[in-house]
Nucleic acid binder design. Structure first.
Lengths: 144, 144
DNA sequence: GTGCTTGCAAATCGTTTGCAATAGC
DNA sequence: GCTATTGCAAACGATTTGCAAGCAC
């Protein structure tokens, strides 16, 4: 489903030297569709990698984002979320349950045009398209 | 340039009882194009309203956002920014100088289509379109 | 052995909370 | 007087920093 299943290759193709910790974080992001926070990644990896520290998770995420191997999603005001899928896509966040879903170009046809857009003299490095609302399940149980 | 120049009317039209503090915050947002943070608003208003507390600024901003009188902009990962212009528009942030600029439908033609878009069974309440890159001035002085 | 990586502990800082003082009807 | 609003001080929580220990080539 994702571009590269192999975390080591993914790291190397972005110029990052693989270490056990980096591989673990990258692997988790490549195989997760839930856009975890740094803390969620730490909690998920801790059991199988007990010496892992939260600092290393933060360091690694920073490195991965700067190298373009991972996307930083700012749709959730509380904390940063991370996405191992670097293909262009939009995100939806449910105001009730907090879930963050991916929206691919099939669902959001303007995505590709937005990405290609020229905006005067601005040099665009990244585009972020976020939808906020209520997901299918949460609508059913809310009047609002 | 903005929809309503009058902060009191703007507050009332969103069901918010005007108080001196609320009027001051709303007025500042209606007449600012810089998308200030809570702290910037506090610092700007403090001199002319010395008893104003940062807590009140936070309380007021929360109230205004919930009432739809103000937009919360999450383009800057460090802190929340606020926009008194609630018309649909996109934002650009410069990675070097940090400036946040408005982009109106003339510049971003897909904006209106995005806002009208149906996304399956999701109920969309808000759309956020952010561009990240380098502004005109900062490009000139950067190799990157 | 030099330089990069890790991880603990402490610091930082934006934001929230508890609660008492104040203002407005 | 009663309720909503304000604002101080303390708490909170995500993220960052300083730095010493560990690892790799």
């Amino acid at each position: 489903m994702l571009i590269t299943a192999n975390p080591i290759e993914h790291l190397q193709s972005h110029g990052i030297k693989p270490s056990p910790q980096r591989i673990a974080v990258m692997d988790y992001l490549l195989n997760s569709r839930m856009h975890p926070t740094a803390d969620e990644i730490y909690l998920a990896l801790s059991p199988s990698m007990p010496t892992l520290s939260k600092t290393t998770v933060y360091n690694t995420l920073k490195l991965l984002v700067e190298a373009g191997a991972v996307l930083n999603i700012s749709i959730d005001e509380k904390n940063a979320r991370y996405d191992g899928d670097t293909r262009p896509h939009a995100h939806f966040r449910c105001l009730k349950c907090g879930a963050v879903l991916d929206l691919y170009p099939e669902q959001v046809p303007y995505l590709e045009q937005i990405d290609r857009q020229q905006l005067g003299r601005l040099r665009i490095v990244q585009t972020r398209l976020y939808y906020i609302g209520y997901c299918e399940q949460c609508q059913e149980h809310t009047s609002n």
